[in-house]
């Protein structure tokens, strides 16, 4: 066991899969000698060589297209898109190509591709370097979208993603990269790609969140506990598919729910969770579904960012509103 940051936990997970499977390849912009602009792939080229960990020309559609052709010739690609905003350049590869190929080949050919990309905000980056585009990608059949909220899950889930035989969009939270540490077991362990986790048990209200907002929600739960209010926090982990069973079970117990996301409110993850609850569990509720989300503007530039991002105060306010309904 060692105490590792979120980013080091991912590096550790990548090290495990590169060591285990000689068919795995890491590539993208700056991932080689430089170890990625965030150093997520630091040391991996030295350890596994330039054939396995390599830089590509600067073109995101090229990088993901390359992944598809490499998968077609027996490789297990782990491409990095430097920032999630840059996936706009590669939407066809994600939505038009890799996610549809299993169907196209009648289930006979697989696309075992893990597309890693940092997302989320709060780090005052340049425009398009912080973004929450998960709302675009969860509507892509054939593509799994997952995001760990802590270092332990980050390592276990990146290993599961690479071992999965379908394309996985693996979202790494920018703000969590260096702000969180966990005891991380050495070597291989996996965390499932399609189940939510009860991050904190409670009985009065359910808070459904993912990625950095899980930590914000946990802060709120801690605070409320001092007033003898027991909030249950669910970390979705997988945004597509969404583990609705875990949510329904919780709502059955608490009868109240607040859904939290960093992304804009329109459509997307929270909207889908709300609709699933409305469709299948509404009779268990004794208050309206509460939602906390960013306003429907484009992702803000640095000066507005802190005011724009939903934080613990916003969550607390909404939770109290639903509790007092």
């Amino acid at each position: 066991m060692a105490k590792l940051t979120y980013i080091k936990a991912i590096t550790d997970g990548l090290d495990v899969v590169l060591g285990e499977d000689p068919k795995t390849l890491i590539f993208g912009e700056d991932v080689g000698k430089n170890g990625g602009v965030f150093r997520t792939t630091q040391g991996l080229q030295d350890k596994y060589g330039e054939d396995r960990v390599f830089d590509t020309p600067l073109a995101e559609s090229g990088i993901l297209g390359l992944s598809i052709g490499l998968a077609a010739t027996g490789w297990r690609p782990i491409p990095e898109i430097q920032f999630m905003g840059f996936t706009f350049e590669a939407v066809d590869s994600l939505g038009g190509q890799m996610s549809r190929n299993r169907f196209r080949f009648s289930g006979k050919r697989a696309m075992p591709i893990t597309v890693r990309t940092p997302f989320g905000g709060g780090t005052h980056t340049a425009e398009m370097h912080a973004d929450n585009l998960e709302n675009y990608y969860i509507g892509t059949p054939g593509l799994r979208v997952v995001t760990p909220a802590n270092p332990y899950d980050a390592k276990g889930m990146v290993i599961s993603a690479v071992e999965n035989n379908d394309p996985v969009l693996f979202l790494e939270n920018l703000k969590l990269y260096r702000s969180m540490k966990d005891e991380i077991p050495e070597g291989k362990y996996t965390v499932p790609l399609d189940t939510a986790k009860v991050a904190r048990e409670g009985s009065d209200i359910t808070i459904v969140a993912y990625s950095a907002e899980v930590n914000e929600s946990l802060k709120v739960a801690d605070k409320l506990a001092k007033e003898n209010i027991s909030a249950e926090v669910i970390d979705l982990r997988s945004l597509s598919p969404i583990d609705t069973d875990t949510i329904f079970k919780s709502v059955e117990k608490t009868h109240k729910v607040v859904i939290v996301q960093e992304a804009q409110k329109m459509a997307g993850v929270g909207a889908h969770v709300a609709s699933e609850i409305a469709e299948h569990a509404i009779m268990n509720l004794d208050a309206p579904i509460g939602r906390v989300a960013a306003p429907d503007t484009v992702y803000p530039w640095a000066q507005v960012e802190n005011d724009w991002l939903p934080n613990a105060d916003d969550i607390e306010e909404k939770v109290r509103e639903i509790l007092n309904y």
Binding site: G62, L64, G65, L66, S67, I68, G69, L70, A72, S93
Partner: peptide
């Protein structure tokens, strides 16, 4: 782009 990957 895909065929470039296959060639690689």
């Amino acid at each position: 782009v895909e065929s470039a990957g296959a060639a690689l």
